[in-house]
Amino acid sequence: MASERRIDLYACCFRAPLLIWQSLFFVVPLGFMFIMSFWLVKNYRMTPAFAFDNWAKMLFWEVMWRSYGYTLGLAALTTAVASALAFPAAYVLAFRFSDAARRWAIFLLIIPFFTSYLVRVYAWQVVLAGNGVLSAFLGWFGMEPVSVLNSPVATVVGYMTLSFPLVLLLQTISLAAIDKSLIEAAHNLGCGNFRTVFAVLIPAARVGLIVAALFCFILSFGDFVSPYYLGGSSPPTLSIMIVDSTKSGQQWPRAAVIAVIMIMTLISIAFAAVTLAYRRRG
């Protein structure tokens, strides 16, 4: 214990790699991006500056705010839909499945994370197109063909492709962790199945459910693939605007402004979610 004040070389060796790498290639890049949002682009070249031109341009640009509202709205809608649709399934997986069956279900839920998201989005294109699989399928039942592609609905389907397995997984894990005797107690006190869900299960699993919803929101808010290839990019989401202004427009500082606005939005929402999750029951 006497050596505690001494610089411990062994301990430093294990502490350093993360600090060095994530500072140099995670914290600094994000910080630099913030600084770059004040730089200017002259003759297609970035020049260091401390100017508010990009911020003024973006903040007073109506198109930006329409995209902002659209992105926020779609991400919120996806979060609500995914959480609501996943919950009954998570309930069944957590309480009606045997441990072994639940392990298999969880294994199945992990698979999607390791199949290419791009390939899955392309598959949805094929399924949802006007002359696609869904229309052909409906045709067998004598229904009219539908084209869902290039609509907000298709974007939400794409967002859900990304987030639904994660939401279901996190909800299942947090529900399965609930002490079963809580449910028995509720039943003994004359609480029906339905009421048990709302009065006991949802409050008990609140943190997990909110974390699942938060991740769903983050994934949807930041994704540029679904709104572009399924939603038809009209209007573009914020992430599409970042891609466009970086890839074709050479307007990195303006892209940085959008990125900073997105990060601030995410931080506020994450803060609100955490507050909600750990708020004392009143």
């Binding site: 994530q22 890049p29 808010f221 930041g222 970042i242 990125a259």
Partner: peptide, 18 residues
């Protein structure tokens, strides 16, 4: 923290810093 930052933002930050 890294998984909580949208990839498109990570991409822009990485590109500009690198």
């Amino acid at each position: 923290l890294p998984p909580t930052i949208p990839l498109v933002i990570m991409a822009l930050a990485m590109l500009s810093w690198l």
